[in-house]
């Protein structure tokens, strides 16, 4: 099951593909959100009038996402991009775990499951804060 010297190991290509797709999608959403925000309040951005887009008043919570998207807020689009980016590594772990499971490497697949459970725990504890 060992890869040839210098060649990608089992599961590496699948994880790389997942990271490329997730990273690309997340970055595209962030870029789109920034473009929409500039289109909406370009004057404020140029002259510094209105709410500081980089200040503490512009923070958003995960729970603001749905409402923000519903009202077409540019910040919500950027936030969605950030969420896609944050979920991408977890998707990579899923891809690695599936590959190891297919290759009957139970210990490694088990380790991947533990990592995913810890990420779920992070979400639960973060929401409880």
């Amino acid at each position: 099951m060992k890869a040839a010297p210098g060649a990608p190991e089992a599961g590496a290509r699948q994880v790389a593909l997942v990271l490329r797709i997730g990273g690309g999608l997340g970055a595209a959403l962030v870029l789109a959100g920034l473009a929409v925000s500039f289109a909406e309040s370009g004057g404020g951005w140029l002259h510094g009038s209105g709410v500081d887009p980089l200040g503490g008043d512009a923070t958003m919570r995960l729970s603001d996402l749905i409402g923000g998207l519903h009202h077409g807020r540019a910040g919500a689009i950027v936030l969605l991009g950030a969420i896609v980016l944050a979920a991408t590594p977890a998707a990579g772990v899923v891809a690695a775990g599936c590959t190891w499971l297919r290759a009957r490497r139970a210990w490694l697949a088990g380790v991947a499951v533990v990592v995913l459970l810890l990420l779920v725990l992070a979400g639960i504890l973060g929401a409880a804060e």
């Binding site: 959100g33 980089l54 512009a58 923070t59 603001d64 919500a76 950027v78 979400g123 973060g126």
Partner: peptide, 16 residues
Amino acid sequence: AVVYLQRGDVVPLLAG
């Protein structure tokens, strides 16, 4: 990131 996003410590445009 999950914890910071849940807590509201992220400015979307800055993070973007």
